[in-house]
Simulated assay, not measured.
Amino acid sequence: MPKHEFSVDMTCEGCANAATRVLNKLGGVQFEIDLPNKKICIDSEHSMDTLLETLRKTGKTVTYIGLK
């Protein structure tokens, strides 16, 4: 599965929890949240657009970095 890396404007554990909630609702994803570096790496068959749209539901600024 491709690993997509995103920059997410997370400032606290609450932000990371919001990202975890929306990604778990999407289903079929494995992810790692790097809070200090404000990055999320997602292992998923979903398209990059779907993942980006899902992460934006947190209300945070999200930028696609690329494949890891």
Results as ranks from 00 to 15, higher is better:
37 N>S: 14
38 K>P: 03
6 F>R: 05
26 L>S: 08
34 D>A: 13
9 D>V: 01
18 A>N: 12
38 K>L: 02
64 Y>T: 02
68 K>R: 10
17 N>A: 15
34 D>N: 15
60 K>A: 10
32 E>P: 01
28 G>I: 06
40 I>N: 06
28 G>A: 09
1 M>S: 05
16 A>V: 02
39 K>I: 00
66 G>M: 11
64 Y>R: 02
27 G>Y: 09
12 C>N: 07
20 T>K: 14
25 K>L: 13
51 L>V: 03
15 C>E: 07
18 A>G: 05
32 E>V: 12
11 T>R: 09
68 K>T: 00
9 D>A: 15
66 G>F: 09
46 H>V: 02
62 V>T: 09
24 N>P: 10
41 C>H: 04
57 K>I: 00
35 L>S: 02
13 E>V: 01
53 E>M: 10
59 G>L: 13
24 N>I: 00
15 C>V: 06
31 F>W: 11
45 E>V: 09
47 S>C: 06
48 M>D: 08
22 V>A: 08
3 K>D: 04
36 P>A: 04
21 R>Q: 11
35 L>D: 04
33 I>S: 02
22 V>L: 07
29 V>L: 05
2 P>C: 09
57 K>D: 05
19 A>F: 03
39 K>E: 02
57 K>P: 04
29 V>N: 06
43 D>V: 05
15 C>W: 09
58 T>L: 07
28 G>T: 04
30 Q>G: 12
51 L>P: 07
59 G>A: 08
2 P>S: 10
5 E>F: 00
65 I>M: 09
62 V>D: 13
33 I>D: 00
34 D>H: 14
11 T>G: 12
